[in-house]
């Protein structure tokens, strides 16, 4: 006789299977529609008229859209690098040192995670308007400075959280062993602590990159007329009409993100395997 299915034995109870299917549909159907419609040979997005790659070609002809995408990727890359550095240092400081007001500082670092994005956006808008205006008319990568700073401000706390969690599993004796064997403080950090943090650094970088890439609200407040990012551009396109061009570029972005995640997972799996073999 077969054992009765357990309470949470999802695969073996049909009502739960139904719920699972519904959830899956709810999560992925919109994406499937988005991808399918990017190949639709029609100006309207909702009715299927036949297969075409025209919209992909149209994307590559749209200089403004490409510029926005390049902007977004550049901003994401820069803010990821900065967030990674800043966030890791913050995590190490919080982990290593006991200082007065440590709890306050820790809370302060976590604040951007919980502050509503609109507030953050308005705050940054005022900051860049009144406190520290970002000079206008700078050459290209520098012109993105304000947005990069804004993105670092909201994404480095995520890096801090991830790295801090990883540090909790670090055996301090390893660092002491390095010091004992003749390493200075920096050498011990580089040779022992950083290698231990690698998976967290990877995860933090991915997090920071995706957060930056698809941020709309904060970017909207800080972007100038010549520094349009991809989400902001798509938003402005959608305000007129949702053309399959938007679908096409969204599909490409989706593919890019999946590829990136896949790559990161592969790298991590290989690192694990190297440790084991």
């Amino acid at each position: 006789m077969r054992e009765k299915p357990g309470l949470l034995d999802y695969g073996r109870r049909w009502p739960l299977r139904l719920v699972m299917a519904a959830v899956g549909l709810f999560l992925y159907l919109p994406l499937v529609v988005l991808v399918v419609m990017s190949f639709n040979d029609s100006k309207r997005t909702t009715i299927w008229r036949g297969f075409t790659l025209d919209w992909y070609a149209a994307v590559f002809r749209d200089v403004e859209l490409i510029q926005a995408l390049v902007n977004s990727l550049t901003i994401a890359a820069l803010s990821t690098l900065l967030s990674l550095g800043l966030g890791t240092l913050a995590a190490i400081a919080l982990w290593r040192f006991r200082f007065p007001g440590r709890t306050l500082v820790q809370g302060g670092f976590a604040l951007p995670i919980v502050v509503p994005e609109v507030c953050m956006g308005v705050a940054l808008l005022i900051f860049f308007a009144r406190v520290m205006p970002w000079p206008m008319g700078l050459p290209w990568p520098l012109s993105l400075g304000a947005i990069v700073i804004a993105h670092v401000a909201f994404s480095f706390p995520f890096v801090t959280v991830v790295v801090r969690a990883r540090l909790a599993s670090f055996d301090r004796a390893q660092e002491e062993a390095a010091r004992d064997l003749g390493a200075g403080q920096w050498q011990a950090l580089r040779d022992v602590v950083i290698p231990h943090l690698r998976p967290a650094l990877l995860a933090g970088a991915l997090l920071a990159f995706t957060l930056s890439l698809d941020d709309f609200v904060i970017t909207f407040f800080t972007a100038g007329p010549d520094t349009v990012t991809f989400p902001v551009k798509v938003y402005s396109m959608v305000r007129f009409s949702v053309t399959p061009k938007v679908n096409a570029i969204s599909t490409m972005l989706l593919l890019f993100t999946i590829l990136l995640t896949f790559l990161a997972l592969r790298l991590q799996a290989r690192a694990e395997a190297e440790k084991r073999v």
Binding site: D171, A173, Q174, E176, A177, A178, R179, D180, L181, G182, A183, G184, D191, V192, P195, H196, K275
Partner: peptide
């Protein structure tokens, strides 16, 4: 500082560096 003393320690947890092979562990110092 620990790196300026003529002593070396065997730790209770051993503290062998997990990301280095045995040879590189021993060569580290």
């Amino acid at each position: 500082p620990p790196n300026a003393r003529p002593v070396n320690m065997v730790f209770q947890s051993y503290a062998v560096f997990p990301h280095l092979d045995v040879m590189r562990n021993i060569e580290y110092g």
